[in-house]
Design a protein around this nucleic acid. Sequence first.
DNA 1: TGCGGCTAAATTGTATACGATCTTTTGCGT
DNA 2: ACGCAAAAGATCGTATACAATTTAGCCGCA
Lengths: 237, 237
Amino acid sequence: MNSAANALQQTDDSAETGAQQIRDAIRDAIVERRLSPGTKLSESDVGNLFNVSRTLARAALQALSYEGLVSVEKNRGAFVAYPSPDEARQIFAARRLIEPGILREAAARITPSEIQHLKQLLLEESRLITERGQTARRAEIKASGDFHLTLASISGNTIMQRFMDELVARSSLVIALYGQSTISSCGHSEHGDIVSAIERRDLDHACHLMVHHIAHIEADLDLRERKGQGLKEAFDL
Amino acid sequence: MNSAANALQQTDDSAETGAQQIRDAIRDAIVERRLSPGTKLSESDVGNLFNVSRTLARAALQALSYEGLVSVEKNRGAFVAYPSPDEARQIFAARRLIEPGILREAAARITPSEIQHLKQLLLEESRLITERGQTARRAEIKASGDFHLTLASISGNTIMQRFMDELVARSSLVIALYGQSTISSCGHSEHGDIVSAIERRDLDHACHLMVHHIAHIEADLDLRERKGQGLKEAFDL
DNA sequence: TGCGGCTAAATTGTATACGATCTTTTGCGT
DNA sequence: ACGCAAAAGATCGTATACAATTTAGCCGCA
């Protein structure tokens, strides 16, 4: 499929077959925002849904909790993560901290064919932006993350790749919760600018653009504390 | 106990009681090098050892595999991770990439009491270096990592803290496999230098020292490929 | 009517059981 | 004696069953 999706197969054969599939399915649903933050994911329900036993459902949910995409509360169940504003800030702080370094590594090793690949991704992104419909929106969300993930994969460092995987996925949750503008497409042109800078071998400028790009995404969030998470606000309004 | 150990409680109550304990116990054993890389950790054995069922043993091993400390191979079993030279290089590349950033964050937020805490850690480290015996060696290994982990905790970013947790633990494995000098104590004075630089608010120098510190640790490794991993070599000698 | 405690339902925590797959050993044939 | 094949053993993969905890509903009482 897309090259960034298979970028996270660090374990490959290490994980047992069934749980892996379920985990990926749920993760995709979360990242594409088909599952809203806070949604309950009971082990039985997940098991029934995928026609497997609770054992596997549980394993999948555990795995997702390690990635910070679901939070499992003892004796209460698993829920799609509901990042607090503070967590959101930490996620983007981490990205600002990491991504420039990844960009430098990637730019140093990038091949012409990989540059071509990046441009292909950009084209795909543009296409999705013009398209209408829910599925296009979801594909756009994923594509936007794929850009950053592909950069990480080009850097050649599997570990950083995995970290970025987690950060991009959690970013999607944050944007779902706190995003204001309809879509993160605002940042699309910035992706293009970054590729151009890489192509010109202007590393410093590329990093500069990357930091600002992340800052722009974060600036679009409304990170004010929601106390009752919709309890009193529903009446005050 | 030590402040860096509780630095990784990102999930807190989220993980189920039993597996968490076992996971931590095994992780400590790996990090302190009581378990050698490559050691087999069968689910039954682990379960018997901790007097729990295979279910919990399995969950613990799975968790450790997500941290890269054990590798589970399908239908074959779990083993203490045996990082390849390439993996080792990636681990240290990742550390060079993120630790300067963490250091900057930490230095910006550090309080006098936290500086005091860091100095305390340094003292403890020195004390352990002079002491004799296996347990002191193991404590020294852990203390050396705690310095970096504490810095991450001071940075205030839980996510980066967890990344560092993984990297430091895996570094311990790499040093166990490829380290040449008897102990990583070589770097102790460098820890002190870094604290001094932080105290003087000389961030650039502190980062510089940090990068070199990591490079020094890596330079002490012999990262040549070991093919037969001890089959013929045992007789050639 | 409102509050407190009690019981029952639902959900997770853990253990055990059975089936599948890989490894090793054993035995046969050459 | 060597190599290959088949069977035995070990270990993991998954499902089911039971125990513990939490949550929600209900009834009685002030």
